[in-house]
């Protein structure tokens, strides 16, 4: 049971094959430092792995970093799996190398926020803390 006083729990991870983990680690640290409970998956996760961990760990949100161009396949797959597991209440957000043309369509499929390179950590922290619980 989640109440307003318990800290928010977030899964932060890398899906797909790319190993660019500079940004994702900074986000994980910034969230941790602001009091969010962070579960970090490490590299090379499949959408299935991410969704399973998210459900096991009872997180409120999943934040994914993708730099390989596979975002158009991987975000929809994660959302689809959440639906299959009746866990659509878990918010999905992300960042990485994502052309602006792709942002709209991904938001339409249910991604809650996409943060481009250059986003300040405080904006991401603010977003996560503002998620409904």
């Amino acid at each position: 049971m989640t109440t307003a006083t318990t800290p928010i729990r977030v899964l932060i991870g890398k899906v797909g094959l790319d190993g660019h983990d500079r940004g994702v680690k900074l986000v994980a640290r910034a969230l941790r430092d602001s009091g969010v409970e962070v579960i970090y998956t490490g590299l090379h996760q499949t959408p299935e792995q991410v969704v399973n961990i998210a459900i096991q760990e009872d997180v409120q949100a999943i934040g994914l970093s993708i730099h390989s161009g596979a975002h158009t396949s991987l975000f929809p797959r994660v959302l689809e799996l959440l639906k299959t597991h009746h866990a659509e209440d878990i918010a999905v957000f992300g960042g990485g190398i994502i052309p602006s043309d792709d942002v709209g369509p991904l938001m339409e499929t249910g991604v809650r926020a996409l943060f481009p390179p250059g986003t300040s950590m405080s904006r991401i922290v603010e977003f996560v803390k503002g998620l409904p619980r």
Binding site: P7, V38, I39, Y40, G42
Partner: peptide, 12 residues
């Protein structure tokens, strides 16, 4: 902080 496949220690 917790690493998904390691021991479940959460630091703040």
């Amino acid at each position: 902080m917790k690493i998904a496949h390691e021991s479940p220690v959460v630091h703040q």
